[in-house]
Amino acid sequence: MKGSASWLRRGYMALIALFLAAPLAVVAGVSVNEKRTLLFPPRGFSLEWYAAIFTEAEWRDALIASVGLALLSAALAVIVALPLSWFFWRRIAPWARVFQVLGVAPFMLPPVITALGFLTFWATGGVYGAPWTAVISHAIFFVTLPLVTISLGFSSIDRSLVEAAVTMGADDRTVFRTVVAPLIAPYLVSGFAFAFVLSLNEYIVAYMTIGFTMETLPVKIFNALRYGYTPTMASVSVFFVGIAVVAVGLIARYGDLPKLLGAWTGEER
């Protein structure tokens, strides 16, 4: 009886693993084809298409645009989320919860809505297409992630530690620097990493804000896809899967992933 249950469990989990891994495995396979063909199993072996991400100007430019956008917007998202979470932790102000709702809303609504909102906003302001508009748009779009992780960080601080510091005469600033900052640092990094990876992969907001003046990598892949297949889209996809796995792996290594995810959905409801 026990044996049959464990067999069922392993078999089912293996099937889901196969479903999740199969498309990525095939893309990894076609990315090493020697010629510019979409063939699986691959013919020959070549890492040329991985080099092309960095040597072909159009792909390199898109990669630089994407990484720059992701770094700046994730940083800005953290800068917006940190004081907000600190305020909720330090003050009793039920009316301020409205800003928490505003911080979570862009993430819960279908992305096309937020994207269209930004498009009309930047067009009305006459700055449509300027690169910095995408940085602000992504920062607002993904502010939910650092907001949730940093709030979780604050909620896990033992308040008696802070009491002790205050008793010894520390003011808000000193408490933040000596007690709070070291304790929430891992949550801050997690929030940054999540926002960074999602911004790197985001399509529609980037497309609607700067799609006609600059190409980020997802926009570049989609534009290239319209004209058929090029092997660089396969290699760059595998490269992006790698970045996502490394980033999430780091969060898991330095944080508590099951706890982070448990609190995550608790926040969302």
Binding site: G29, L39, P218, A234, A244
Partner: peptide
């Protein structure tokens, strides 16, 4: 969870491209 989160963060473009490859005539 690392694998699931990594796939969740993947671009829709990449997912679409990966499945179009898996469903293609020559590589799928």
């Amino acid at each position: 969870l690392v694998g699931i989160l990594a796939i969740l963060s993947l671009s829709e473009v990449i997912i679409g491209f990966a499945w179009s490859t898996l469903f293609s005539r020559t590589a799928g």
